[in-house]
Computed example of a mutant assay.
Amino acid sequence: MTPPEAPQAVQTFGFQQVDVFSSVPLRGNPLAVVENADTLPDAKMAALAHWTNLSETTFLLNPSQPNADYRVRIFTPYSELPFAGHPTLGSCHVWLSSRVLPEGRDILQESGAGLVRIRRDGNRLAFAAPDLLRKGAVEPDLLAKIRKGLNLSEKDVVAAEWVDNGPGWLALLLKDRNAVLALKPDFAEIAGIRVGVVAPTPGDDEADFEVRAFSAAGFEDPVTGSLNAGIAQWLTGTGIAASAYVARQGTVLGRSGKVYVTRSDKDVWIGGDVVTCVKGQISL
């Protein structure tokens, strides 16, 4: 008979659940954040991310690089990511909630992808888009597979580009917002591929582009910072978009996420509001 496992000591951590890319609760992309998680084992991090079943759960730790303000680890329900956009802004929002920094001071977040610079503009946060790890045209065979999975013809796709800054995104540019909103993806056909779709929204007072994100795991993501960062570098770099624009995402899912893009001489900034929905403690 196998002896029972010895009980493990329970630890208590600060915990917040925030909504990112929205100033209104329940309209953006939710994120769970565990504070001061240096003593939490990797297995417990992974188990909690699986339990929350959110697209990402993050853990704030002391930095290992001298210039960083804090370190973040980002977990999906099934794996760890080196970088993701809405967890970057949401984690920074939680980190800032327990401290006061001088106005105008940028925050340096350490992640698996390196240091990410974050700035504050009133209540809004923005991160400097990391360099693309892969860019350029999507291979014809892969593009044909994606078109089949999205039920698109060759003439429906204006352009297609790799916009991978870590998670593996590629993006399709369509003609208009209605074409984006009408998509009904066959997730079995595009399994294992992260596909973003974007189109201009002329005459729309709230947003300049409509975006949707189809994950490699078979679901649609409500509002996606990493995808929007890659798309922004592509669109502003080629002149398809102006140096400042607003992207809307999540419409089909009943969300109303807003991503505020600004291109400066050196960086493309990806901004959004963050609102706290749950704040307390979690025992693990």
Rank of each mutant, 00 (worst) to 15 (best):
W95P: 02
R212M: 04
N228F: 09
Y70G: 04
E110C: 09
N228L: 09
L183Q: 00
L173S: 03
E103R: 09
A213E: 02
D156N: 10
I107H: 03
L101F: 14
T52L: 00
C92R: 02
A113Q: 04
D69W: 02
A137L: 11
R147W: 13
G230N: 08
D42T: 15
T52Y: 07
D205Q: 11
R263P: 02
V24R: 00
W95D: 01
Q11G: 02
L174Q: 01
P7C: 03
D38P: 01
I118R: 01
L235H: 00
L115W: 09
A213S: 15
N67T: 07
S226N: 11
L54S: 00
R248H: 08
A188N: 07
S91M: 01
G149R: 01
D42M: 12
F214P: 15
A47V: 14
G114R: 14
S111L: 10
Q8E: 15
D42S: 14
L174A: 03
T236R: 06
K145I: 01
L227W: 13
L172P: 01
N29T: 10
L172S: 02
F13R: 09
G90W: 06
D42V: 13
N29G: 10
D164A: 07
V33N: 00
R177A: 08
Q249E: 07
F59D: 09
N53L: 05
M45I: 15
P30Y: 05
R248K: 13
Q65V: 12
T276V: 14
H86D: 09
T58I: 10
D42I: 10
R255F: 10
D205T: 13
E210R: 12
L235M: 07
G272D: 14
F83S: 10
L183C: 01
C92S: 11
F13K: 00
V197R: 08
V246C: 13
S226V: 12
I190M: 02
V195Q: 07
E206W: 03
I118V: 13
I231R: 01
V100T: 12
V223D: 05
L227T: 10
P4A: 11
G90M: 04
S111T: 15
C277N: 03
D106R: 06
A37D: 14
L150F: 05
E56P: 00
A160N: 10
V278K: 05
E5T: 15
H93M: 12
F219D: 09
E56C: 01
L96A: 02
